[in-house]
């Protein structure tokens, strides 16, 4: 069953065509990578799916439901979570407080103004558990803005998953990481997305081929190819357009 489907998505920014007739299909439980050269429209596709923009044309289906034009907060409640290419944490809040926001959201505590948050033991316990799982328990009380780059990226990824979504959308999670950090990040992603569906935008081909069950290649706003990693590797069109330059 497809957990996520886009049907004939077309999007333009005041005349500038960015996406053209994109039909993406993501099966429940798979790890799906979207690759493509810069400017191919990957992040725009993400933004259209996660509710940043309403597509100019076409529909988005999530778990069989038409979610075209839904606002981000609504999509989170339906079970979608996303991270950002440019780290977008709550910089002046501690790592603990950052993750706790996700836990609160997951528990549906959004407008409660009658209980003291620090005294909600179950929330604290669950947050600490998450911090431990992502190896940030040592940095529990450090403001997110003061974390090392690798750690802040880990936090960025984990925040997308703290709401316990069924579908996780990660936008270049390893961008700017060293080889070592990338390795850790991949392990973290693999661990955290166990049993979930993952859609990931990635430039690092090592990451793509080690993580993904399926790959979609986006080029100039359209899908060039979509299939198993081995098929993509063998695809001549993909080689010509993209992989060739990347020396895979």
């Amino acid at each position: 069953m497809n957990i996520l489907e886009t049907r004939a998505i077309t999007h333009d920014f005041s005349g500038l065509q960015v996406l053209l007739d994109v039909n993406l299909e993501v099966k429940a439980g798979e790890r799906h990578a979207i690759i493509g050269p810069n400017g191919a429209g990957k992040t725009t596709l993400f933004n259209v799916i996660t509710g940043t923009y309403r597509p100019s044309e076409g529909e988005v289906f999530f778990k069989g439901k038409d979610i075209t034009g839904f606002k981000p907060h609504k999509l989170v409640r339906l079970g979608m979570g996303r991270s950002f290419q440019i780290t977008s944490t709550f910089s002046r809040m501690t790592a603990f407080q950052n993750i706790r926001m996700g836990i609160l959201s997951k528990r549906g505590i959004r407008f409660n103004m009658f209980r003291i948050l620090d005294k909600m033991q179950d929330v604290t316990a669950e947050t600490d558990e998450v911090l431990k799982r992502i190896n940030l328990d040592g940095e529990r009380n450090v403001p997110a803005g003061m974390l090392s780059y690798g750690k802040s990226r880990s936090l960025e990824i984990s925040m997308a998953m703290a709401t316990d979504p069924e579908l996780v959308m990660l936008d270049e999670p390893t961008a700017g990481m060293s080889k070592d950090e990338t390795h850790h990040a991949v392990e973290l992603i693999r661990r955290l997305t166990e049993g979930k569906t993952l859609v990931i935008i990635e430039h690092d081909m090592d990451v793509v081929f080690s993580l993904a069950d399926r790959i979609t290649v986006l080029h100039l706003g359209t899908i060039l190819a979509s299939g198993a990693p081995a098929d993509i590797r063998a695809d001549q069109a993909v080689k010509d357009a993209y992989l060739g330059e990347m020396e895979v």
Binding site: T50, K71, P72, H73, V76, R77, G81, R82, F84, S88, T89, F90, S91, R92, M93, Q97, R100, M101, G102, L104, S105, K106, I109, R110, F111, N112, M113, F114, R115, I116, L117, D118, M120, M159, A160, A162, T163
Partner: peptide, 25 residues
């Protein structure tokens, strides 16, 4: 000190991300 109070602080820090964590800004 309440949960809503902490949502308030996160709105100041990054209102875009708050929405992507499921809160209504």
């Amino acid at each position: 000190k309440t949960p809503l109070g902490s949502v308030m602080v996160s709105v100041r820090d990054n209102d875009n991300r708050v929405a992507y964590m499921g809160f209504m800004v």
